[in-house]
Amino acid sequence: MSQNPLTPAEFDAVTTAAAHWCMRLHASDCTDAERLAFSQWRDAHPQHAAEYEAMLEIWEVSEYLPHPTPPSAVGKPLARPSWQRLAIAAAICAMALPLAAYSGWQMGWLPDSYERFEAQGALRQVTLADGSQVELNIGTVLTYRNYKDQRRVTLKQGEAFFKVSHDATHPFVVKAAEGQIRVTGTQFNVWKYQDQVRVTLVQGSVLVTSNDALRGDGLRLAPGMQARYKGGDYQPQINQTYANDSSLAWRDGRLVLDNLTLSDALPLINRYLKTPVMLADHETGMIRIGGVYNISQIDSLVPSLPQVLPVYLSRNAEGNPILNSRPL
Rank of each mutant, 00 (worst) to 15 (best):
N146A: 14
R315E: 12
V292C: 12
H166I: 03
R145C: 15
E51S: 12
V174N: 03
K76E: 02
F172Y: 09
P98M: 12
K230W: 02
V74G: 00
W41I: 04
L279P: 09
Q307D: 13
S82K: 06
P306E: 01
V14I: 09
F38C: 04
T209G: 10
A177N: 05
P303E: 06
A54N: 15
L25G: 03
N239S: 15
L221S: 04
I92L: 14
D233W: 06
L328W: 14
V126N: 07
A222V: 01
T127R: 14
A91P: 01
L266Q: 02
S72P: 02
G291N: 03
I295A: 02
Y234V: 14
D32N: 10
G158S: 02
V292K: 10
E53N: 12
V174I: 15
V61D: 00
A73K: 02
T200C: 12
S39V: 06
G131N: 05
E57R: 13
L305H: 07
S300P: 03
V74E: 09
A79T: 11
L6F: 08
D245L: 05
W41A: 00
R215L: 15
L266W: 08
P8C: 11
N4P: 02
G253N: 02
D281Q: 10
Q203P: 04
R80T: 07
E135D: 13
P276I: 01
P71R: 02
M278H: 13
S296R: 15
Y102N: 14
Q235T: 06
